[in-house]
C-alpha cells in the first residue's frame, strides 16, 4: 500500500495541473458549442469520440502494436545474435560495432524516409524501421553480459570440455540473461516509439498511431488527439511492463545482484 502512495500523489498532482492548464488557457473553449479547442479537461476527453473515430483509433493502435511487436521480436533475435557474434571474436565486434552506433545515433525520422524510399510504404518497411530503433540495446547488453562472465565460470566449461555450442547455450545464454532483460526493457519502449514515429512517413494505407495523431492535430480535434496520445503512452507502458514481467519470470528467482 505504502508503495502506491507516491505514484498516486504524483498522478493527482498531474491531473490537477492538467485541469489548471485547461481552464487557464484563453480561448480554450469554443463560444458556440463549448467544446475544447486546445486542451480538453480530463472529464471531457471523450466528448469528440464518435464510433467512426473510435474505430480509427483502434485500427491505428492495432497497426502500431503489430509493428512494434514484430519489430521488437526481430530486434531481440537479431540483436542477441549480433551480441553473441561480437562476443565470440574481437574482429567481428570491430566490424559490427560502428554500424550499431551509427544506427543508434541516427534519428528515426532521418532513417524512415530512406527506408520507405527503398522498400515502399509496406508493413515490412514499418517493421524494419522499428528493428533499427530497437536493436542497439539488445546487441550491446547481450555483448556486455557475455563479456562480464567470470573467469572461473569460463574455466569450468573448459574443464568440462564443453563444445563451443554447448558453452554458448549453457553458459553464455543463462549468464547473459539478466543483461538481456535489461536490454529488453529499453528495447521494448524503443520499439513502440519506433513504430509510432516511423508511422509519420507512411502516407498510404491505414494510419498507425503516429499519423492518426497528426491527422487529429491538423483537424484541430483536441479530444481524439489527447486520447490517441494517452493510448500511445499506455501501449509503451504495456510493452515495458511485459519486459519486466518476463524478467521476473525467468531471472528474478535465481538472480540476486
Amino acid at each position: 500500500m505504502r508503495r502506491l502512495t507516491a505514484p498516486f500523489v504524483s498522478l493527482v498532482v498531474f491531473v490537477a495541473g492538467w485541469y489548471a492548464l485547461a481552464y487557464s488557457l484563453e480561448n480554450n473553449f469554443a463560444t458556440d458549442d463549448g467544446s475544447a479547442l486546445i486542451v480538453p479537461p480530463p472529464h471531457r476527453l471523450f466528448e469528440g469520440l464518435n464510433n467512426r473515430t473510435i474505430e480509427r483509433i483502434l485500427l491505428a493502435t492495432g497497426i502500431s502494436v503489430a509493428t512494434a511487436l514484430a519489430g521488437l521480436a526481430l530486434a531481440v533475435m537479431l540483436g542477441t545474435a549480433l551480441g553473441i557474434l561480437m562476443a565470440s571474436a574481437k574482429t567481428v565486434e570491430r566490424a559490427i560495432w560502428p554500424w550499431l552506433i551509427a544506427v543508434q545515433v541516427t534519428p528515426v525520422i532521418v532513417l524512415t524516409p530512406i527506408i520507405v524510399r527503398i522498400f515502399g510504404p509496406s508493413f515490412l518497411a514499418r517493421v524494419f524501421v522499428t528493428v533499427l530503433v530497437a536493436i542497439f540495446p539488445m546487441a550491446s547488453n547481450v555483448l556486455f553480459g557475455i563479456r562480464a562472465i567470470p573467469q572461473a565460470w569460463r574455466d569450468l566449461f573448459v574443464l568440462r570440455k564443453a563444445t563451443p555450442l554447448q558453452t554458448v547455450r549453457e553458459l553464455w545464454f543463462p549468464a547473459a540473461l539478466p543483461s538481456f532483460f535489461a536490454g529488453l526493457r529499453v528495447s521494448s519502449g524503443l520499439a513502440v516509439i519506433g513504430s509510432i514515429v516511423g508511422d509519420f512517413f507512411f502516407t498510404r494505407g491505414d494510419p498507425g498511431l503516429g499519423r492518426l495523431i497528426n491527422y487529429f492535430f491538423l483537424d484541430t480535434r483536441s479530444g481524439p488527439m489527447f486520447v490517441t496520445a494517452i493510448i500511445a503512452t499506455l501501449v509503451g507502458f504495456t510493452f515495458f511492463a511485459g519486459a519486466g514481467f518476463l524478467r521476473k519470470l525467468f531471472v528474478d528467482p535465481w538472480h540476486k545482484p
Binding site: A152, D155, L156, L159, P174, A175, L177, W254, H255
Partner: peptide
C-alpha cells in the same frame, strides 16, 4: 583427470 576448486565457489547461479 584434474578437478579444480575455485576461489569463490563459482557456482552457476541459474
Amino acid at each position: 583427470r584434474i578437478g579444480f576448486v575455485f576461489q569463490d565457489s563459482a557456482l552457476l547461479p541459474w
